[in-house]
Write a protein that binds this DNA or RNA. Sequence first.
DNA 1: GTGAAAGCGCTAACAA
DNA 2: TTGTTAGCGCTTTCAC
Lengths: 380, 380
Amino acid sequence: MTRGTGRGAGSAAPRSVDVARLAGVSQKTVSRVFNDEPYVSADVRRRVLDAAEQLGYRLNNAARALASGRTRSIGVVTLGTALYGPASLLMGVERVVRDTGYALRVVNTMEGDPAGVAGAMDSLLDQGVDGIVISEPIDEQTDGGAPALRLDVPVLVIGAPPPVKAPTVLTAGHGADLMARTATEHLLDLGHMTVHHLAGPQRWYAARDRLEGWQAALTAQDREVPAVVSGDWSAASGYRAGRELAEDGGVTAVFAANDDMAIGLIRALTEAGRRVPEDVSVVGFDDIPVAAYVTPPLTTVRQPFDAVAQEGLKRLVHAIENPKAEPLTPSGPPVDLVVRASTAPPPPSRKTPARGRRTGSRAARASSPPLANGGLSTRH
Amino acid sequence: MTRGTGRGAGSAAPRSVDVARLAGVSQKTVSRVFNDEPYVSADVRRRVLDAAEQLGYRLNNAARALASGRTRSIGVVTLGTALYGPASLLMGVERVVRDTGYALRVVNTMEGDPAGVAGAMDSLLDQGVDGIVISEPIDEQTDGGAPALRLDVPVLVIGAPPPVKAPTVLTAGHGADLMARTATEHLLDLGHMTVHHLAGPQRWYAARDRLEGWQAALTAQDREVPAVVSGDWSAASGYRAGRELAEDGGVTAVFAANDDMAIGLIRALTEAGRRVPEDVSVVGFDDIPVAAYVTPPLTTVRQPFDAVAQEGLKRLVHAIENPKAEPLTPSGPPVDLVVRASTAPPPPSRKTPARGRRTGSRAARASSPPLANGGLSTRH
DNA sequence: GTGAAAGCGCTAACAA
DNA sequence: TTGTTAGCGCTTTCAC
C-alpha cells in the first residue's frame, strides 16, 4: 500500500508521529496541539508547531473522521441552476460554513432528476456529513407517496416546510409569503383594483409561498383574486405569460414571482403596446443586479440571502454540536421593498378611488436615473 | 467513544463485518461487493446486498479514505459571487463531478480575501481532495511576489493560465479571447470604424482574455484601438461607464465584457439620448437568461459552460486515476455569437465604406420579438 | 501537563 | 472465487 492521502507520489506525507519525534514529544501531544486542547505548555506547543511547519505536516482528515466519528463537514443540496436566488443562497451558505470551521460538500438536484432531493441527501450521507442544508427544495414527483426520508443528522431547510424526518429539523428563511404580500400591497396602495400574479412553478415551495402571500394581501382587502398565470422562472416564460396578459385589458398590475420573469413580462407588454408603468405596473422579486438598469428600472423585493444563510447555519451548527440542547429560535430578516420605475398608479380610465385604509408601504417613486444603490428602499 | 460517523445517537451504525456476518461471508467479500470488484459470484453478491439493505448499511467513507489514501472527492475554488458566469460554471462542474463518482467540496474566494486562492486551496488540501478545480481565478495582490503554490494533486484551471505548480496542471476553457474577437469582428463587419471596449476588472484573467481578443480583432484590421473603459462586472459599473462613453460622439460600437455591464451601459446611453442600436451598437458577453428580453434584446456571445466543465473534468479525473499517463489533450468548444437587436450598422454620418475583406460572421438581424431561443446564432 | 495502548472501519496484499 | 492478516493516521481512555 502506498502511504499518504493521495498527496504525494514519491515522498510520503508526514504523520503526527513524525512531528512528535522531531519535537521530542509523544504523538498524543501533537494531537492535542492541533485540536487546541488545554493542558499543553506554551513551550511544547511552540516546539510542536515548529516541527510541523518544518515537515510540512497537515492533519489527515480521513483518519480524524474515522477516529472521532465526525467529519466536520456540512452538505448542501441545491437546485442545479444558475438562477440568481439559489446561486446567491449557495454562496451565502459557503461563506458561513467556512467561518464555522466546517467543510462544505455540494450536491445538486435537477428538476426531473429521478433520484431528486432524496437521492442527493443520500449521496451526502454516503460521503459522511455532520449536517445537511436543503436549499429551496421542490416537490418530488412522489408517485404513490414516497415516505419522508429519514436521516440521523440535523437538517436545515431554507425556505420551505421540512420534507424530512431527522433528529433536528430547522427551517430558515424569511417567509417569501410576507415579501410577496408586501409587494402586492404596494400595488394596491398605488390604487390598483387588484393585482395579477405571474407565478413560479408550483412544485417549488418558493413559488407557492409567493402565491400565498399575494393571495393573502388580496383577500385581506376583499379584492378579486384573478386567475394565476405560471412560468418557469425564466424570462422566456415571463414573455409568454406577458403576451397572454396583454390581451386582457383589465390587467393594470402584475406581481411576478421573480425578476427574470418580470423582465420577460415587461418586454411582452411593451411589444403589445401596453406601457409600463403607465398602463401596467410590474413588481418583481429578488432584486437581481440588473434590475435597476433594465427599462424601466424594476420595482422589486429584495431577499436577504446572506442574512438567511447565516442565521440558519448558526442554528444548524449549534444543533450539530449540542445534540441534546434545545434548538435555537430563528430570527426573521427584514423585508425590503425597492421601489423603482416599473410601478405607478393605474391609468385614469380604470383608476379606483378605493385607496384602502391600509398603512404600511410608504411607497415613493424613484427619479428616473437609477440610483447608485438602485432606487428607494423601504423596510417592513 | 460513540460509534458511527455522527450518524446516530443511540443505535450504532452497522459496519461491513455486521453485513458479512449476516450474509455468512467474510468482511472482505462485503468490501468486494461494494467496490464492484470482480470475482464475486452473483449469488454471494445478492446475499451481501440483501444483508446490507436489511441492516441499512452504508460504506464508511472516512475509513475507506484512510485505508486507500484516496478521498474520491474533488475540490473546487470559486469566486464567491452569484455572477452568472461563475455560478454556471460551478453548476456545470457539480454535474460532471457527480457523474464521475466523485464528491464535490467547494471553497470560495472573495475579492479582497487576504488568503485568496492560495488559502482556499490550502483548506481544500486540508480536507483531503484528490484533485482541484480552480474556476476563473483572479490575481492575488502578491505583495512581494508570493511564490506559486505547490500542490501534489492534479489541478484544472478553468479560463486562465495556471498560477500553481502541481504534478499535473490542466487548463480548460474556451479562450474567452476568441469569443471576444468574434464579438468585435461582428461589429467591424457591420461597418463600424472601430469598437470601444468596456472591460472587466483587470485582475481577472477572464477580463484580460476578453481585452486581448478585442485588441487582436482591431489590430488585425489596422483599426484604431481606443482607450479602454473599465467596470467591475456589475450593471451599475456599466451604467457609469455608459455616461462617460455617451459624451464621446465618436463612439458607435461597444463590446462589453459581460451582459450585466452591457445592460447598464445601454441604459446610460439611452438616457443620454443615444439610441441603441441606431446610434451605438452594443455587444455583451455570456448570454444571460434575460439577455433576449431586455430592451433592445442584446447581441452577445454565449459561453458553453457545461461543455467546458465536462471536457475539463474528464481530463482531470483521467489525471487523478492515471498519474503516470500523459494528460489528455483538450478540445476547444465552439464559439457562439447570438445576434439580436442591440447591434446595427453605424449611423450614416459616421459610416465608413471600409467593410473590410473579412469573411466569417454571417451576421443577420433578429426580427423584433425575441425568438424562443433568443435570436439567431452563428457558430464559429 | 503528558504519554501508552487500543481501536475507529475499511482496503491491500497475499493465501487458499 | 473467497478468506486472512496487517495496517492507514488519528482520537480516546486511562495511567502517570
